[in-house]
């Protein structure tokens, strides 16, 4: 870029850079500094590795890490798989497609908190519709969806899958609709069944979209907070259903331990960085064009 071009570009970029510096990079740097603080409060700084030592020995932190990995490993692929199925059905209907697309997209634009209240009610042990349904239909014993430490995890995962469907379906239907219909005509002439056409033409052609959803899905899953906190709330810790961000949140707002929260945040940042790099590498390997 020429010098003049650079000068001009920097003026356009400056507002965004300032905002990012103030709200992203300064806090990020600060968090890294604080994570090496021996004391809980930022007012009293003493360089040390003590917080990290505490963190890796904390059972609660290990549980949070395990839950977050489990959540990510299940929610992302399962949600994408279900979304592919629903999206493929959506694009195969001609009439009312927009109507159904809207219906599937509504959960995305509703507040997680409001939706979580409804789900908390559905999963209520004694009065919840889910138990009522399972009990009456399959004569299952009552499941303590939100309070059993062995179950609460999975309740959060089910909710997380449901929450992320809307966005995935929207992106996937758009991706599928953008495939040139000529390829399907060619496939028909070439004697391909609908299933063959889907597996050998649609899926490879939308693979960049799927790779994108995996990246975004994993990053979002790692940062999951609303889904847990609104569904199970403070209890999440006692039923071992908390995730990394819940752990960080509690460290700040309950323990008032800024150093601990910072150290956990740095761990989260590192994990997300590694995942992003990995998924970028994967999607560069699965580039079907070229």
């Amino acid at each position: 870029m020429s010098n003049a071009g650079f000068k001009q570009a920097i003026w356009y970029l400056l507002p965004a850079l300032v905002v990012m510096a103030v709200f992203t990079y300064y806090p990020l740097g600060n968090a890294i500094v604080q994570s090496f603080n021996r004391n809980r409060s930022p007012d009293n700084y003493e360089l040390s590795l003590k917080t990290y030592e505490y963190l890796i020995n904390d059972r609660d932190f290990k549980v949070a890490l395990r839950n977050t990995f489990l959540y990510t490993a299940v929610v992302t692929p399962v949600s994408i798989a279900i979304s592919i199925l629903i999206a493929s059905m959506l694009v195969s209907i001609q009439r009312l497609r927009t109507f159904f697309q809207t219906i599937f997209f509504i959960p995305y634009v509703t507040s997680a908190v409001a939706v979580a209240f409804t789900w908390a009610f559905l999963f209520n042990t004694d009065r919840g519709l889910v138990n009522l349904f399972l009990g009456n239909l399959f004569h299952l014993p009552k499941i303590r969806w939100l309070t059993d430490p062995n179950v609460a995890n999975y309740t959060v995962i089910i909710f997380g899958i449901w929450r992320s469907l809307a966005f995935n379906i929207l992106i996937l239907t758009t991706g599928m609709l953008s495939v040139d219909p000529q390829y399907y005509k060619a496939a028909q002439v070439d004697g391909a069944s609908a299933t063959t056409a889907f597996v050998r033409i649609t899926l490879p052609l939308i693979s960049p979209v799927i790779a994108y959803l995996f990246t975004i899905g994993m990053i979002n899953a790692f940062k999951v907070f609303n889904e847990v906190y609104t569904l199970i709330g403070n209890l999440s810790r006692s039923v071992s259903a908390h995730t990394l961000v819940v752990y960080i949140f509690d460290a700040v707002w309950r323990a008032r331990d800024y150093s601990l929260a910072s150290a956990a945040s740095v761990v989260l940042l590192l994990v997300v960085l590694v995942l992003t790099a990995f998924s970028r590498w994967v999607s560069s390997k699965t580039n079907f064009y070229g």
């Binding site: 000529q182 005509k185 060619a186 028909q188 002439v189 004697g191 069944s193 079907f288």
Partner: peptide, 20 residues
């Protein structure tokens, strides 16, 4: 008869080669 069963060869105006 379904197009998949007619067994004809078709060359499309824009070729429609599968890009992947």
């Amino acid at each position: 008869l379904d197009a998949t069963k007619r067994g004809i060869g078709f060359v499309f105006q824009n070729y429609a080669l599968y890009p992947h």
